[in-house]
Simulated assay, not measured.
Amino acid sequence: MTSLKTPRFGLPLLAVGQAHKELFHNDALLLLDFLINPVVQAVADDPDLLSPAEGDCWLVGTSPVSGWSGHAGEIAGWSAGGWHFIKPQKSMKILILSGDANEKGSAIYDGTGWQHIPQISAPTGGTTVDSEARLAIDSILGLFRTLRILPEI
């Protein structure tokens, strides 16, 4: 028998003669809604400390408790039906809206864990200042921050 889930993200598939197909279809759409342009509020370990709105997502931290136990490193999305979990795939990128300087910004999943993209500061100091080069570097850094490739300073 074939699996009734997609191979990458485990989205539920429909089967011939399956009862309540709309439940499986709606669950797949909900997970896709979380996956398209994945944005998480922050990194957290305890869902009991949160007040999620429908559609909010968090990146589950390394020591999850309560309802998130066993889901470290996954994306947890909240809906009226409760928490839904998405296992990340290699090279998946997310945007983390808040947190400390090491967490906020973009992160990429490398197959074993999330790698947070570090801050890159604009050039300062030096004995020879090339203002045109600094302007170009500042423009590149600004573009990367606008595209959310780099976190904002």
Rank of each mutant, 00 (worst) to 15 (best):
Y109Q: 03
G73S: 10
D110C: 03
G55Y: 05
I137F: 08
S131K: 15
T124C: 03
S98A: 15
D48H: 11
Q119C: 11
L14E: 00
G105S: 09
D33K: 14
L35D: 00
H25Q: 11
H20T: 00
Q119D: 15
W83D: 06
L49Y: 08
S121I: 09
E54D: 15
S69M: 04
E152V: 07
G70N: 01
S121W: 10
S3Y: 10
H25Y: 13
K87C: 01
G113Q: 15
V16G: 02
A28W: 05
T112G: 14
Y109P: 05
D45Q: 01
D138T: 08
S66Q: 12
D100C: 09
E54G: 11
L135A: 14
I149Q: 09
W78L: 03
H25R: 13
A107C: 09
A80K: 13
K104R: 15
K21F: 00
D56L: 05
P12T: 03
S69V: 06
G61R: 09
A122W: 04
G82K: 07
A76S: 05
V43G: 02
L135W: 01
L95Q: 13
S66K: 14
T124A: 13
L50R: 12
T146Y: 12
G70Y: 04
P38N: 01
R145M: 04
P12V: 03
T112V: 14
V129A: 10
G73R: 08
T112N: 15
S106C: 10
D46M: 02
H71M: 10
D48Q: 13
W58K: 01
I94A: 02
S66T: 10
L23E: 09
I149P: 07
G10Q: 06
M92Q: 14
G125N: 11
G99L: 10
N37H: 12
E103D: 11
G105C: 08
P12Y: 04
I108F: 03
F9L: 13
G67S: 12
T2P: 15
L11S: 01
A44C: 06
E22I: 02
G17E: 06
W68H: 03
H116S: 14
P47V: 03
P88T: 05
T146A: 12
W114R: 03
S98T: 15
A80T: 15
F9K: 11
G111N: 11
I117L: 15
L147Q: 12
D56R: 08
S3M: 08
W78K: 06
I108M: 04
T2W: 11
N26M: 04
S3L: 12
L13I: 00
P123C: 12
